[in-house]
């Protein structure tokens, strides 16, 4: 375990330090006093664990291929951008465009997430990315979603608060969304439908919920108090009939 005090450090210096350490074989790094440094874990492919105390900057773990990052704090925009593998555990909120075009790995957010979370998330062969949100999500959740799993638990919502914003699943053409709570039809993109859960869904959910509870010390009974809805796209060719040949 190596500790790096990031206060006042420029991101390029900090990231170089992290890359160096990991390439030297350090398995666990703790970054303290992080505030706003971008690109932490960018392109990382090593089996290493980074613990971040503070607020990392944008594009945390972008293009990451496989490592573990645990953030004690909130994360900013663009976390897990085009990520291909690894695990991110966020003990706070995440901002906009979390998991854009994410193709692999898992992101667990204890609290809320911003706009466009999981936009254009993809699955491919055995790569099945997942984002688990403990609180609520903003508008355009899972927009263009093409694969993977998105779970929103809606824990701690006020009685009249929505679990997701508007345009949930707009343009969705793959993957599956599990929402623990009600969603009004007008909140959904016209490409998605609500269906009931199968046994297989329950099994899948169980795995992620187990992790969520473990990471954040949440009681499973609390989650089990409310049922899940499952959202899937009508088809994988949402814009198939939009054009006419000239």
């Amino acid at each position: 375990m190596q500790t790096i005090d990031a206060s006042g450090m420029l991101y390029r210096d900090l990231n170089e330090l992290v890359r160096d350490s990991i390439s030297r074989g350090v398995k666990e790094i703790c970054l303290i006093n992080v505030n706003g440094q971008r690109y932490i874990g960018d392109g990382l492919a090593k089996d290493a664990s980074t613990i971040i105390e503070g607020t990392p900057g944008n594009d945390l773990a972008a293009f990451m291929e496989g490592a573990r990052i645990e953030v004690h704090g909130n994360v900013q925009d663009g976390t897990a951008n085009t990520m291909n593998g690894g695990t991110i555990i966020i003990h706070g909120d995440a901002r906009d465009a979390l998991g854009y075009s994410m193709r692999g790995g898992e992101v667990y957010v204890r609290g809320d997430v911003g706009y466009r979370v999981g936009i254009h998330m993809k699955g491919y062969q055995d790569m099945n990315p997942a984002i688990v949100v403990g609180g609520k999500a903003g508008d355009f959740f899972a927009e263009y979603m093409a694969g993977g799993i998105m779970i929103v638990l809606g824990l701690g919502l006020a009685p009249d608060e929505d679990i997701v914003g508007n345009y949930c699943g707009t343009g969705m053409h793959g993957g599956v969304i599990y929402l623990r709570g009600e969603v009004a039809p007008e909140q959904l993109g016209k490409e998605v439908k609500v269906v009931s859960l199968t046994k297989e869904d329950t099994r899948i959910l169980d795995e992620y919920l187990h992790n969520y509870c473990r990471y954040f010390g949440v009681e499973r009974e609390e989650i089990d108090k409310k049922p899940f809805r499952k959202l899937i796209p009508y088809n994988k060719r949402p814009y198939g009939n939009m054009y006419a040949g000239w």
Binding site: D59, I119, H120, K236, R237, G240
Partner: peptide, 17 residues
């Protein structure tokens, strides 16, 4: 492209980042 066979490969107008 690393997407399932037969699905539309949608390129949104903007990069969402």
């Amino acid at each position: 492209r690393m997407i399932p066979e037969g699905t539309d490969a949608i390129s949104p107008a903007p990069h969402h980042d």
